[in-house]
Amino acid sequence: MNKVRQLDDIVAGIEDGATIMFGGFLGVGSPLRSIEKIVAKGVRDLTVISVVNSYPGGGFDLAPLFSNRQVRRFVTAHTGTCPEAIEAMKAGDLDVEFYPMGTWIEKIRAAGAGLGGVLTPIGLGTLVEDGKQRLEIDGRSYLVEMPLRADYAFIAGHRADTLGNVEYRGVSLNSNPVIATAADFTVAEVNEIVEVGEIDPSRVGTPGVFVKAVVQGDSPTEHQAVFERLWVRTGRLAAPATAA
């Protein structure tokens, strides 16, 4: 049961109008090579579900999907970091559906965990309440938030074994373990693919039962280099001294 696949083969199966979840938070913990391939394929009318949008200022991770107008509907907690998405909104090419971040993740968790929805007080008395059922329980009010799932989930991890067990690293797990549970077809893009048994069971962040395919992303070294370049370019780390 070897789940290792070529990314090109998976992306070839994605059709116009698909609903795709992406893990990651402003590019960190994002399946960068998968996004690139989906951009290159040019599928359109996508519904994209991601907790936030691109790295601030655009031009990275999800941003090209919006500049190419491949996304029709974006389900998120925040989109303001991505100038390309704002332009698409202004042009009438993009609808954005906002949920409070904690509600967004619980809706997906509910879908993956077989729950009928979530009761939350967050958003009461705001625009988030519009069109939603409100329940009174023991004198407190709650909004009913429905489960949220997708055709595909693309997650990013540090390592995976060939059974699809995924190990995360650092703060980059963010939405990945949750969205991995809530799609018909979950793809894990990882920095390193290892043999079964090499990942300590206590370090498995996403059990392989949730994962349909494992694909090779940037190597650990290239992964570090990508973010060093990004953070230096955007002034978040001091630039390296110029070689004499």
């Binding site: 936030v52 998120t76 907690a77 925040h78 989109t79 303001g80 970091t81 704002i86 909104m89 202004k90 009438g92 609808d95 954005v96 906002f98 409070p100 971040m101 904690g102 509600t103 007080p121 967050i122 958003g123 009461l124 705001t126 625009l127 988030v128």
Partner: peptide, 19 residues
């Protein structure tokens, strides 16, 4: 940003003010 459309989004702010 356009009629009926807003940005940037609440991020975690609604959860924070509620919790």
């Amino acid at each position: 940003v356009a009629p009926g459309k807003y940005s940037p989004g609440m991020g975690g702010a609604m959860d924070l003010v509620g919790g």
